[in-house]
């Protein structure tokens, strides 16, 4: 009887572990694919900008799943490709740009979110004064972290801004077991921006 129960538990545990592993593996695959696609876009952009003059619109909008740009935080060695949307598929592949928010570097609040157990695992170590770099098709912006706070799940935390602003969010506490109850909010202001033609 005990051996049978043990076998059943092993099968159940293995099934759950396989499901979790498949989810993580799919996220890693999507992340690599996003990196490759972004590299191809960068190469294409370099060729296009050399041949024609491209004028960027005032507010760039993206279709869901489209690559928005690249996010780098040198202090914690974070280097991720940002996709449009904060659904499960987008957040599995990498940080997601919240639809409706500004594109990084453009006037307004640009909101980028990611899972704490994957792409934003090191976000808890980012402190005020750290440098953040975003690269989109239209701009390369260097930001400095000016705010760091932990808010409740339902607490309003995203606010409009007339000037360019970057907001990075993830769940908090970072090492929480189960769905985390709070959110870590990092806000950054631009210190250097260069237009990419």
């Amino acid at each position: 009887m005990r051996r049978t129960l043990g076998a059943v538990l092993i099968v159940i545990g293995a099934a759950i572990l396989c499901g979790v592993g498949v989810r993580y593996a799919r996220g890693a695959y999507d992340r690599d694919r996003a990196r490759a696609e972004w590299a191809a876009l960068e190469a294409h952009h370099a060729v296009a900008s050399a041949s024609t003059f491209a004028s960027a619109p005032a507010h760039t909008t993206y279709a869901p799943g489209v690559l928005v740009g690249r996010l780098l935080i040198p202090s914690v060695r974070l280097d991720e490709v940002i996709a449009e949307g904060v659904g499960d598929d987008q957040l599995d592949a990498g940080p997601g740009h919240l639809p409706g928010s500004a594109s990084p570097g453009e006037p307004g609040n640009a909101v980028i979110s990611a899972h704490r157990d994957r792409h934003f695992h090191s976000l808890g170590r980012v402190t005020i004064g750290d440098t953040v770099i975003t690269v989109t098709r239209t701009a390369r912006t260097t930001w400095v972290i000016v705010g760091r706070k932990v808010v409740g799940r339902y607490q309003p935390s995203l606010f409009p801004s007339a000037t360019p602003e970057l907001t990075l969010t993830t769940c908090w506490p970072i090492r929480y077991i189960g769905p985390a109850p709070d959110r870590l909010i990092l806000t950054a202001k631009p210190v250097d921006a260069s237009r990419r033609a």
């Binding site: 904060v86 957040l91 997601g96 919240l98 909101v111 979110s113 990611a114 899972h115 704490r116 157990d117 934003f120 808010v151 799940r153 339902y154 607490q155 309003p156 935390s157 995203l158 969010t169 993830t170 769940c171 769905p179 985390a180 109850p181 959110r183 909010i185």
Partner: peptide, 8 residues
């Protein structure tokens, strides 16, 4: 709005 739900 509150931050997007990134809880997993």
């Amino acid at each position: 709005a509150p931050a997007p739900n990134t809880a997993t």
